[in-house]
Structure formats: C-alpha cells, structure tokens
Computed example of a mutant assay.
Amino acid sequence: MMSRNIMKLSRRTFLYMAAGAAALPALRPVARAQAYPTRPITLVVPFAAGGSFDVIARVMTPGLSEILGQQVIVENVGAASGIVGVNRVAHAMPDGYSVLLGTVGTHAYNPALYKKLPYNPAADFAPVGLIAEQPLVLIARKDFTPNTLPEFITYAKANAAKLQYGSAGVGSTTHLACALLNAAAGIDVTHVPYRGAGPAMADMIGGQIQYMCSNTPGALPQIQGGTVKAIALLARDRSPLMPELATTHEQGLSD
C-alpha cells in the first residue's frame, strides 16, 4: 500500500474538483515515507484569479501548508478552458512539487470537446484526492429585469439579440451549463468566453454581459453583497448555502 502511494506521488499530481474526501490524508503518509516535501509546492489553478476554483484553492492552501510543513503557492494560469495550466503541470518535473487543481472540465469535458490536447488526462496525472462538490447557479446583473427562471426565459426569448452571457472559457463547466440551460429553455443568446470566471464576473457586474452560470463559491460573495442577482440553482435540490434560492427543477425546468 505504501509503495503504491509513493508511486502515485512520484508522478504529476492533480486534485479533482468533484464530490468527496479531502486530499490531505492521501498526502500525509507519502510525505513521511519520502521526507516530502523539502521545499515549497506550486498548486496550479488553470483559471484566472477570482473564480470559484481560485477561491477554493486559496481557502485550502493554508491548512495544506500547515500539514505539509512547506508553503503551498497558488499560481493562476488561466487560458484556453484550462488547457494551458493543465499542460504546464503535465510537462513539469514529475517530483510532486507541481500540483494541479483539476476539474471535470479539464479532465472530462476538454477531451470530449477537443480533437487533440497537449496532455493526456489519464496517463499524465495521478489523482491525489477529491476536494469539493459545487453546484452551479444562474446569476445576472443586479439590474436585470427577471427575478425568476420563468421570467428569465420569457425575457431572454423576447430580447435574445440584445443579450450576452459569459463563461470561464469555451468548453468550461460554466459555458456548458449555460449552453445546456439555453438549449433546454429554447434560448439563442451570444456566448462571450473569458479566461476565467473571475473576469467574466467582473464584466457582468460592470454591465458588459447580462448573465452567466457560475460555480457557487465564486457567486456566493457577490450574491450576498448584492452586486449580482441569483435567479436559479442549476440542481434538483436546494443548496444549504442558499436555501432560499429555488432550483431550476422547482421552477419548471426539469432536465
């Protein structure tokens, strides 16, 4: 069991953003066996600063640094739906000091959307652990007319040519979520891809785009601060973080 863990750590590692357990227990026995780490570790977030994955990384790294006894440095490398950042780690020295905060987008969606990637999501990485599950939420500018999903659908159908929605990049979770929502609702709205959810959020607050489908950690502070409007949680069940926000299922969009 120990030798298997050592083999995993010697390869390039990544942390999936999905449901489940923390990465720390998987790292600790390996660190003792190999006197690892002896220098700072770089945690690459393949999206721009300010987005939900960046938020989770910065919340997680202080505790990770304390347990490992070395500083874990967050580096944002946001471009091309996470491909640039993922590729950097895939081609880094396989010594356990370059770690990736991977997502379902970088390791599942991208291989399905792009014919050729500069990395192999299965062969180039060894999973360390699952970190979090985060539902997406449909949010809009605070002065956006609709307040509910039915109102949003009616308004978007009548004003589609005037609307734009943003995302963290082509093929990102935030892009596909809104694309599926639009398709299910029969809406045809222009997509504006960004180099991360943070820049997309900033432009929406500034009025350049009207709405987006954001991961909860990136959206929640803005919702609570009143800078954006939450319209629906893209899930079947409500979130304990926003128990007052009705889901798309509750508001009549079942799938």
Rank of each mutant, 00 (worst) to 15 (best):
V86D: 07
H107D: 03
M1C: 13
Q222R: 09
T190Y: 12
A232I: 11
L149T: 03
E133F: 04
M93A: 07
P62S: 10
K115Q: 01
T13H: 09
L43C: 10
L181H: 12
H175Y: 05
K116V: 09
G20S: 05
T248V: 04
V99A: 01
H249T: 06
V170K: 09
S65V: 06
R28D: 10
H191L: 05
Q134G: 09
E250Y: 03
P29D: 04
N76S: 04
Y109W: 01
I73P: 00
D237H: 01
A160D: 09
A140Y: 09
A90Q: 11
Y36Q: 07
A49N: 01
M212N: 04
L130T: 13
G20E: 06
N5W: 14
A132C: 04
E250L: 10
G69V: 03
G186R: 13
D203W: 08
D54A: 13
V55F: 01
R39M: 08
S254C: 03
M242I: 15
R58P: 02
R88C: 03
N87L: 03
L113C: 01
A200P: 07
P127I: 06
S65N: 00
R28I: 08
P150K: 09
I41Y: 10
R88V: 08
R28G: 07
T227E: 09
P118W: 00
A232C: 12
G50N: 13
H249N: 02
Y109N: 08
D188L: 02
Y119F: 10
T154R: 15
L64M: 10
G166W: 01
G51N: 05
R238M: 07
F47L: 11
V189T: 03
Q251A: 00
Q222E: 12
V170D: 06
P221C: 03
A232L: 06
S3Y: 10
I67S: 14
G20K: 05
A197M: 15
L130N: 10
G69K: 03
Q134P: 00
P46C: 08
I139D: 13
L117F: 00
G225C: 06
V189E: 04
T216L: 14
V128N: 07
G105I: 03
M1D: 14
A26T: 12
A179G: 06
L163F: 03
N5Q: 14
V72P: 00
P94N: 05
P118A: 00
P118Y: 00
Y211T: 07
A48N: 01
A177N: 12
P62C: 10
E244I: 02
G105Y: 02
P217I: 05
L181I: 08
I41V: 15
Y211G: 11
S65G: 11
R11H: 05
G252Q: 04
L181A: 02
A18H: 09
L149P: 11
L43A: 12
M201F: 13
